[in-house]
Design a protein around this nucleic acid. Structure first.
Lengths: 230, 230
DNA sequence: CGACTTTTACTGATCGATCGATAAAGATGG
DNA sequence: CCATCTTTATCGATCGATCAGTAAAAGTCG
């Protein structure tokens, strides 16, 4: 896996085309044209369309999840022996995501659109890649939420994490719908503005789940690995 | 627009295949095979792949939005001259969505996956169809949220609406990720369980936005250093 | 009524374009 | 020369769409 310049160029082009057209709608020829290379060269470097797609995802996911985990570790160390505050945990989870969506140098919106489709997709490829790249960080943050909010059960912590991600990803992708519906009032093009609105929303929601324990859901966190959802 | 049985059969098959493979990944032949008809018949009834896709969306959107608007009207009438409660408004918004996602007779998960991709997509087709079918109901519910929560500004009401939809749609689509991450604890296959968790979360979040109206209040205390060597 | 025409619903054959992928030859630099 | 990178040419498969043609139902008229 030599860090080739050609590889990076192809990955950037693939990221954009996959984001705009989806996996099936993106053609190797369109990717090659945007990258300024020949189509068979992509096969030389990445073998197949599937492997190219997986590498596009892996590159950004490794970046963003590395940031999230090291920031979470730093947060936990700083607060030790107490648990970090909920606002800090949620901010640490969301900030790298929102920032990546606003940083053109790292794919910007393109990867954002990709990862939204990935996280919400039900096809085998999306489910597999999502679990492969995002389950570890999910478990870490779910545990952090539980430590900071002892009243919340495991199931509600999982729900809260998924709700937080569900809110953050579309903002990362920025479809412009908020601006359209508010006649420009909610044009959230600034990272800090987005965090200032989403973090209080999510934290208040999580505390509501903790204060209002819902269905009869026991708390047990022994098994960590699991194959599939029944 | 004769209510033909063949048309409905094709629409059902198209809904499933589009949901499983996306617009580009779904082939007219695969749709025809699932519908038990031959491929040119689809062109006879729907002209083109684009029009077929639009009709698949239109059929369910008209159903679900009709339910939502009439339920909202009834809610407003019942509470008049006061404004309806926030929990009732959010429940009225989400229930038809969640229920549709759990009703196999009306497409069930299939339309759910479709509409998730539609709402999050940035391609021209997705943006156009989303605005065409969902902007009216969005404006109605945003106004209702503002009437019930006078402290919330217009921009935050829009945000709250979009956050609510962002939370509800993935649950409608049920990727099984919640169950996988919680070892089955959060297997939300029941409509009432989902509503009992999402509605309090969303309402608490909305009230937090209303109580903390500063749209320009960046959270600075744990801003991450993203510069690598800077 | 019965013969004729029109409309509707559907089918088999096939079009040109494009798909992902491969083989093999050419270029490049150590 | 050799290994790495890049290109040209091309494969078989599949894509959305169109065509002519058929069977049956519906409408028309003496």
């Amino acid at each position: 896996m030599a860090t080739n310049q050609t590889r990076a160029t192809i990955l950037d082009a693939a990221e954009t085309v996959f984001a705009e057209a989806g996996f099936a709608g993106a053609s190797m020829r369109a990717i090659a044209q945007r990258a300024g290379v020949n189509q068979p060269l992509i096969h030389y470097h990445f073998e197949s369309k599937d492997r190219l797609y997986a590498e596009v995802i892996h590159r950004r996911a490794a970046d963003i999840n590395g940031q999230r985990l090291s920031a979470l570790d730093a947060l936990i160390d700083r607060a030790a022996p107490a648990a970090p505050g909920l606002e800090d945990i949620v901010t640490t989870l969301l900030r790298p995501t929102i920032e990546l969506g606003h940083d053109p140098a790292r794919g910007g919106q393109h990867y954002a659109n990709l990862v939204v489709a990935l996280g919400n997709g039900t096809d085998e490829r999306s489910v597999r890649l999502t679990a492969e790249h995002y389950n570890e960080v999910a478990r870490r943050f779910i545990a952090a939420i539980q430590s900071s909010l002892p009243g919340v059960g495991r199931a509600d912590a999982v729900r809260g994490y998924l709700y937080a991600i569900s809110i953050a990803l579309p903002q990362m992708a920025r479809t412009g719908r908020a601006a359209a519906l508010s006649d420009g009032l909610a044009d959230d093009s600034d990272v800090e503005t987005i965090l200032a609105r989403t973090v209080p929303f999510i934290c208040a929601g999580l505390r509501a789940l903790a204060d209002e324990p819902g269905a009869t859901l026991p708390i047990q966190d022994n098994k960590l690995e699991r194959e599939e959802a029944g």
